[in-house]
């Protein structure tokens, strides 16, 4: 893997000057993933912040071939591109001559956990050679912070508002990484942009495997989390240190936790700075906070039990 110094000298495949928010987690994720291709790479993006923020015509931030077509179909779109590649390669008709090309689909949690899960499941089952990266910021941020099936429980969103009767989202988030892994693909992982080295290693592995690979990446969102732009990487790190967002990978069916915090931080340390959880810190909601902590503890223990095991 490249050192940080080497990485800093590589040309960015996603240029600066895009319109994503200051403090958005998506650009560092995309840049690190694309660098891991280490050669020609073609990407698609589902409708969402990344698409809107990088392309407003006549500008584009993409220095690679890139397509956006709709919301629910990034995995189907990349299936078509990758199949075209295999077809033209075997016929000796690739534009510019024979070469090895990597294929990446990016989607937010709405475009992946929710509306895009059918297309994703289909593409994984068919075994296309591609990497799907979900940037999970925990809600439909592009349309104004509506809950998705990735939204943390009790989160205040515009469609799961913390109201007088119902205190935010009532459901635990969908465990998409495990759902994807159940397709028995060669590689699936969770990562976070604060740990660039772990994310880069995973992206490199994901690019190297023959067949579908998947990465679910924590993506801080100052707009939807009601946090300060300059603190995003700090809150990404705390999501991992509190074990809300464990870093692990499932390689050829074997689960491995890639980072275990020396000291597991209380969940409240991650929740408190975020405006979306403000209501949990009212005295009358202490039990909700406790319930949330218990669930995180249970999920973390479940993962520890699986560490090093073949699923």
């Amino acid at each position: 893997m490249a050192t940080l110094k080497e990485l800093s000298k590589q040309q960015e495949l996603l240029s600066g000057g895009h319109r994503l928010c200051a403090g958005c987690g998506i650009p560092p994720i995309v840049r690190l993933v694309l660098r891991a291709a280490n050669g020609p790479v073609v990407a698609t993006t589902s409708t969402g912040c990344l698409e809107v923020g990088t392309t407003i015509y006549p500008y584009t931030a993409w220095r690679i071939p890139w397509i956006h077509s709709a919301f629910e179909n990034a995995a189907a779109t990349i299936s078509g591109i990758e199949s075209a590649y295999r077809s033209l390669k075997k016929q000796g008709r690739l534009p510019g001559g024979d070469k090895d090309v990597k294929f990446v689909a990016f989607g937010g949690d709405g475009g992946t956990y929710d509306i895009g899960i059918q297309a994703l499941s289909g593409a994984l089952e068919r075994g296309h050679n591609f990497l799907y990266v979900c940037y999970d910021n925990g809600a439909y941020m592009n349309t104004g912070i509506q809950r998705s099936s990735a939204t943390p429980m009790l989160s205040n969103t515009t469609t799961s508002p913390a109201g007088k009767v119902i205190p935010g989202k009532q459901q635990w988030r969908k465990d998409l990484t495990r759902i994807v892994a159940a397709h028995n693909i060669p590689y699936a992982a969770q990562a976070s942009p604060h740990n660039w080295s772990d994310l880069s290693k995973k992206a490199e592995k994901a690019m190297q495997v023959n067949g579908p690979a998947f990465m679910n990446v924590m993506s801080p969102c100052p707009l939807g989390w009601y946090t300060k732009s300059e603190d995003s990487i700090k809150w990404a790190k705390l999501s991992v240190d509190t074990c809300y967002w464990p870093l692990y990978e499932i390689e050829d069916g074997v689960l491995k936790i890639t980072y275990k915090p020396k000291e597991k931080k209380p969940l409240a340390e991650w929740l408190k700075p975020q405006g979306r959880f403000k209501h949990l810190f009212k005295p009358e909601n202490a039990h909700l906070l406790e319930e949330f902590q218990k669930r995180v503890d249970m999920e973390w223990q479940r993962l520890l039990d699986l560490d090093g095991k073949r699923l």
Binding site: T44, S69, A76, I78, G80, A84, S87
Partner: peptide, 28 residues
């Protein structure tokens, strides 16, 4: 034929794959 067949999971994905493949440079 030398065609790559994609047995998609829905017609929505069929047309999405057509679009991806066509934009990639294939006759679809």
């Amino acid at each position: 034929v030398t065609t790559e067949l994609i047995t998609v999971e829905s017609e929505h994905s069929a047309m999405s794959a057509c679009i991806g493949a066509s934009a990639a440079g294939a006759r679809v």
